[in-house]
């Protein structure tokens, strides 16, 4: 985590992305390769070589993230993950064929297990190691500034005061889990902000919430900057 970490995916509140290109219900894939990329990504996850937070890290740090289509991002993210985890080599990607022996993987998803695996999913909730620090209705201040690792606190919601609205139990902490540093579960809260506390010239009667892990938050009345 010593290199400067830049996510290109933290888009909330940014401008200049053009109009929304609407598509009606029923369009799932535009090309066969998109479907295949989705399937390859889901299937390769059975290898146990990464978790969802690691895969998000590999996608959001792609330098050309904003120039790529959604499934181009997935394809590039999967390729770099596979190389990073030693499952394939750059030469193999270029060749499109196996050139060296495979590494051992946890499992291979077979067709007969697809339905059960998808229907089971993978819970992010873990037993809490202690009581929740915050209660419903508490006013909290979110972490300010940039952090040099994967995180799930959007930039627009940093250094803002909001209100705890829901408590979700202890969940796997992406900031560590994305960097192979363990799940280190923390209490997770829905924190809601008045739009006027997020944006200049915001319209009243608009509110935005994020789901925030406990270490993203401190009591709002503890207004002391370390």
């Amino acid at each position: 985590m010593s290199d400067v970490y830049i996510s290109h995916a933290d888009l909330g509140g940014t401008t200049g992305h053009g109009p929304i290109e609407y598509e009606p219900e029923g369009i799932v894939f535009h090309h066969g390769w998109e479907a295949k990329t989705l399937a390859l990504t889901l299937a390769a996850g059975a290898s146990g070589k990464w978790n969802i937070d690691i895969s998000r890290r590999f996608r959001e740090t792609l330098a050309d993230y904003l120039d790529l289509s959604y499934y181009e991002i997935w394809t590039a993210g999967l390729e770099s993950l596979l190389v990073d985890r030693g499952m394939v080599s750059e030469d193999e990607i270029a060749a499109g064929h196996a050139l060296i022996e495979p590494v051992e993987v946890r499992s291979v998803l077979t067709a007969d297990r697809v339905a059960a695996a998808m229907a089971k999913g993978s819970s992010a909730e873990r037993p809490p190691s202690g009581p929740a620090r915050f209660a419903m209705g508490d006013r909290v201040l979110t972490r300010a500034g940039h952090v040099d690792h994967h995180t799930r606190l959007p930039g627009y919601a940093t250094g803002r005061v909001g209100t705890v609205e829901r408590i979700h139990g202890a969940h796997v902490f992406p900031d560590t889990n994305a960097h192979d540093l363990g799940e280190q579960p923390q209490w997770l809260y829905t924190v809601v902000f008045d739009a006027t506390d997020l944006w200049d010239h915001a319209t009243p009667s608009q509110r935005v919430s994020v789901d925030a892990w406990e270490s993203y938050l401190r009591p709002a009345d503890e207004a002391v900057t370390p």
């Binding site: 295949k36 390859l40 299937a43 390769a44 390729e79 394939v88 499109g96 064929h97 196996a98 291979v108």
Partner: peptide, 14 residues
Amino acid sequence: VRALETLLTEKGYV
């Protein structure tokens, strides 16, 4: 993507 599919299949990962 077809190349990636071939590669991962040959390796036995998918």
